[in-house]
Design a protein around this nucleic acid. Structure first.
Lengths: 247, 247
DNA sequence: GACTGACCTTGATACAGATCAAAAAAAGGA
DNA sequence: TCCTTTTTTTGATCTGTATCAAGGTCAGTC
């Protein structure tokens, strides 16, 4: 993938479709196009960004905070199908109806682009389309990895898998420190975790307690988690590799 | 999506990345490029097309038959993460190592394109990249829909969901006949179904028997299935809509 | 036509996780 | 600060699916 990043974005961490901070910092030509079609929206924890079926006139990128994509059955059974962390993209060019409900699971800042002009930009700048394809393929891989978690892992392995993912993303963005203890804030309620993992919140709570008892993790309060040994956690997750930790 | 199909492929059912028969029939300019980089490979039921981790020098499109993408844990637990039906595409531009094991679940014919030239073609013909993005987004939606199946549906609902998908795809390609009984051949063993659904083959067998007993389906032999009333099956699948049946 | 092996079905039992219920711990709000 | 509400933990019990174990069916082959 590295070799496919277009020259325009080579040194730009704030590419419109993968920025980590604020897009305005980026000085590529394309951003001139985007400048007047973008705007920011913030949401507080628990607020809905949009509902499945809503008209969706924009695509967006997460600047900070965490959002979830969920699907709900008629009888209320809910499954989270994606977790949007900073730099993740939401919205589908060519479709103006939202397929999933998007909810802020923590305070959230999104950078939105009006859909039509964004689509035009994609059509006129092939390398952005290219970047978007890569990101979509990455998401597809993530979704498929999650299918293994949902279909074949035990409750304990599921929890460990989720904690690994969050720890990994947190470490990648912040003070990465391989081999040392890792502390991070869980951006999800027990219920949201359950919805992601296909479990009940009681089972999530029990397994969290079990991981704590077995000293795989330490809990400060209910949300602050310390992982003394990342390898142990990955072992509990049943991963056959380090899953690209810190990559 | 419809409006995004490029002019070159407007009337071409055999677009290289979405053909239904044989690509050679297509007379677009791009296909001249593809003509000398493509070749066909056939596999018999049960044969492996490639293993996860293999070097992968081509991308491919299913011409006929069915293949599966699977992921396996160290201890042997297996999860199917995708079902490749005719016109489906496999392979990722920009990555030459296969992430999943690809297996022919029935006799299979694939149309392969050498990877490097294919990537070049993508770079030089934006509308193919565009088409590929659309297809990837469709796959992502399918993967996410399957996450709901894996995470929240009961065994019976899972079986009904799988049968619906196969019936739908079969109907779309063949003699569609809404409102009438639908008969098709199951291209999967009970074990493959189990791997797709995150169940054991015994549970699959029991639920198939139950659906037969309840007259949701009829079995002729072990693989030939008749669905007298598609709506009933969709009801069993717990789908809140017709899921795009015949679309 | 009976032998073989792969695939499928059915039965008995075990167990992981769901469900129902209540208490404990935080988080707000007056 | 106390009171209310929400979130989390823990306990008791139930249930759907896994597991273990036979037996049945069918296609291919000698």
């Amino acid at each position: 993938m590295q070799q496919m990043v277009s020259p325009a974005f080579k040194n730009c961490e704030e590419c419109p479709i993968r920025h980590r901070a604020v897009c305005a910092k980026c000085d590529s030509d394309e951003l001139a196009l985007l400048e007047d079609i973008k705007y920011y929206r913030s949401f507080s924890a628990g607020q809905h960004v949009m509902w499945a079926g809503d008209q969706m006139d924009f695509v967006a990128s997460v600047v900070s905070g965490v959002a979830s994509l969920t699907q709900t059955m008629e009888d209320g059974r809910t499954q989270m199908v994606g977790l949007l962390l900073p730099s993740d993209f939401v919205g589908r060019p060519g479709r103006n109806i939202a397929t999933y409900t998007v909810t802020a699971t923590s305070d959230l800042l999104m950078c939105c682009f009006r859909r039509k002009p964004f689509e035009q930009m994609i059509d006129s700048t092939p390398h952005v389309a290219h970047r978007l394809l890569e990101m979509t393929l990455d998401e597809l891989d993530a979704a498929r990895e999650w299918m293994l978690v949902l279909g074949r892992k035990t409750a304990r392995e599921k929890i460990a898998s989720l904690l690994s993912i969050i720890a990994r993303r947190d470490a990648a963005l912040g003070t990465a420190n391989p081999g040392k203890a890792l502390t991070f804030e869980l951006p999800l309620t027990r219920e949201a975790m359950a919805d992601y993992l296909g479990l009940t919140l009681e089972t999530v709570s029990r397994q969290m307690s079990a991981l704590k008892r077995d000293q795989i993790i330490t809990l400060s309060g209910k949300r602050r988690i310390t992982v003394p040994d990342m390898d142990k956690l990955l072992l509990e997750a049943g991963d056959d590799s380090d899953g690209g930790f810190l990559i």
